[in-house]
Design a protein around this nucleic acid. Sequence first.
DNA 1: TTCGGACTGG
DNA 2: TGCGACGTGA
DNA 3: TCACGTCGCACCAGTCCGAA
Length: 454
Amino acid sequence: MAWKEFRFVRDGKAALVWKIEQNGDTYRTQHGQLDGAMQEYSDTPGSKGLTDSAAFITPIYNCTFHVSREIRKKTENGYIEYENGKPLTEQIDGIDFDKPLPKCFCSYKPQTSITDVALAKLHKDKRDRYSRKYDGCCHVLVHHTYGWEVYTRRMDETTSRFPKLIGQLNELKQFGKGTIIVGELMCLKPDGTDDFKAISRFCRSIPEESRRLVKHGDIHEPIFVMFDTLFHNGRDLKNKTYDDRSKLLKTLPPLQSVIDYEIATADKPFYKNEFRIVSVDYYDLTPDTWEAFAKEAGWEGFVVTDGLAKSGNKFYSFSGKAKRPKGCHKLKPEFTEDCVVFAASQGTGKRLGRVGALWIKQIDPNTGKFVSYGKVGSGFTDEDIDFFSEKVKELDVPFIKNEREASKIDMENNYDLVIEIKYSERQEDTNKFRFPVFLRLRTDKGPKECVANI
DNA sequence: TTCGGACTGG
DNA sequence: TGCGACGTGA
DNA sequence: TCACGTCGCACCAGTCCGAA
């Protein structure tokens, strides 16, 4: 079968090329820059469902499904199909407020970290601005020529979930047509910490169900916390400084000012009024104080931004992927703990035939017994993967696929395999790690020393 | 009723 | 959400 | 040589949907 070719043209840089070819039950992709070296990957998805059942899908049919899904993904990220070096359609590179935003539009994101040196310099120059980082769902508000619309981060139009929000947006005269605002949709617990579960449930349910959840009081009406303005009254703000842009946000009350903890009860909202559009909270912090402050409050962390930074071409993109401009960084407290490996999962793709992830357990301090706290698959180098693939073979560590198989394993049987991981927090009910990352092997520690810090 | 795949969001 | 691998170009 | 950009692979929790 012939290759299908797609390209993504960039300003002042070589175009990106992506090709895909299906051969029976296997497909290959190639990617790289135009006229540059290409990297190749291939996959054989295999069949799906039980043989002889109505749902059985042949390997070839399943492969075709995977291929069309890959093509859809690339198309949604702004790639255009090419034939004989000619584009079949036109690539999107601007915003038309008469139309819905394209799927490939994407706002910038903060960089995942900042070095101590860089942060110290920002502070010394008095350019560091600290805003709280929220744990909600990122959304984009757009004032089209035909009114306000709400979009998810992936540019799915979701306005019908937010009748109240739209009504309130229409009263904000400072944001005219041709405005794009990015922010976080939030639910709060009575103690003021972020309720990610609640907002997640609201955003994932079908719109009618979302509204029903609010009506029945299962979830409070979400609040929208603005953290930046990309376009204002038709003007692109990519060459404005952060301080300039934040003047717009400061025309709204910050989140903290609309909450009254005194009136909060388990089932009663604790907002001072009905208004659900606020600005981020700014804090007067320093490189030495932010971490303790965040841990004490139980918050995700902060975003530190250079007040004089301009984002330029990294302000937004039409590639479906967030750019990370200079001068905007996350500050997240980090936690590390030791865990015992009790099983492994088979890898796929480039980890095929090797270990994909390690299942980890710790001693629950309340019962003194070992409990599974999930698995870790990130943070491994290629050498680490080779090392652990050998090690699990040597120690005869079982391979398992899911939690059900994990529950059949005798947790009190220990392999002498202790690793240190870092994570951002533990999940609320299960105490499993959220975003676990492998750090290093601990040969100096024994299984009995791995007690969960909960 | 239960389970797994597809998908999304972090 | 996280990370590492890889190719490219300053 | 190193920074940057892109890609691919891994995590947990949740909803929806269809099949067993």
